[in-house]
Every structure is written in structure tokens, then in C-alpha cells.
Amino acid sequence: MELSAYLAVAALLFLIGLVMVAARRNLIYVLMGLELILNAANLNLVAFNRFRPEGMEGHLDGQIGAVFVIILAAAEAAIALAIVLNIHSLFETIRPDDIDTLKD
């Protein structure tokens, strides 16, 4: 398969993640959408690493960047879920629309 096929899949995945973050009324869905977005970026990184230009045969920088993204996504998921649990015990809800103490 050529590079653009992988890029199209990654773009679709990014779009689905974006809709998930923007449209669902549940903080857990927001987290899942974030994971989808990060995964789409990862797929782009690995695909570009596979189709790298001439003279860069030995380089694996794209894959290493993807490993760092996975590391940071793991840390982000742990912290974000801790924050969600805290929000739940403080506000008794995890709807992002209801958490508006700072609004007025």
C-alpha cells in the first residue's frame, strides 16, 4: 500500500476522535477521543518512518517518536482519570457541561 492510504486512515481516525471529544457529554468519552487522536498521530509517524526519503534507510526516528507519544499517553491517561475521579467526588457529575463553577 502507498503512504496516502495510511494517511487517509489516520485522518479518519483523528476526525472520529475529534468528534468524540467535542460531541459526547461524558468525560470518559473525552479521554477515549484523546487516545484516538494520539493514535492517529502515531500512525502518521510510523507510516512516514516506513516511507522515508532516500538516504535515510537506517533511521527509526519516527518509530522512536511514536514510542514517546505512547509513554506520554500512558502518563496522561493516569493523571486524567485521577482528575475525573476527583471531579466526580467534588461535583457528583462527570458531564463537562455541568462543571461550570468558574463561569460566573
Binding site: 500500500m1 495510511y6 470518559i28 479521554l31 477515549m32 487516545e35 493514535n39 502515531n42 510510523v46 507510516a47 518512518n49 516506513r50 518509530q63 511514536a66 514510542v67 505512547i70 499517553a73 500512558a74 491517561a77 493516569a78 482519570l81 475525573v84 475521579l85
Partner: peptide
Amino acid sequence: LLAADFLAMTQVLIYAGGILVLILFG
């Protein structure tokens, strides 16, 4: 498919095994 075997293993271990379990706990 993209010849990134280490990354595929990491994906299964960390995402499917770790982050998803974390989300289910949440």
C-alpha cells in the same frame, strides 16, 4: 504492516493492556 514490530508489541501491551483497563476502571 509498516515493519514496526517493537511498536506493535508496545501498542498491545500499553494501550490494549494498560490504558484500556484504566479507562474501564474509570
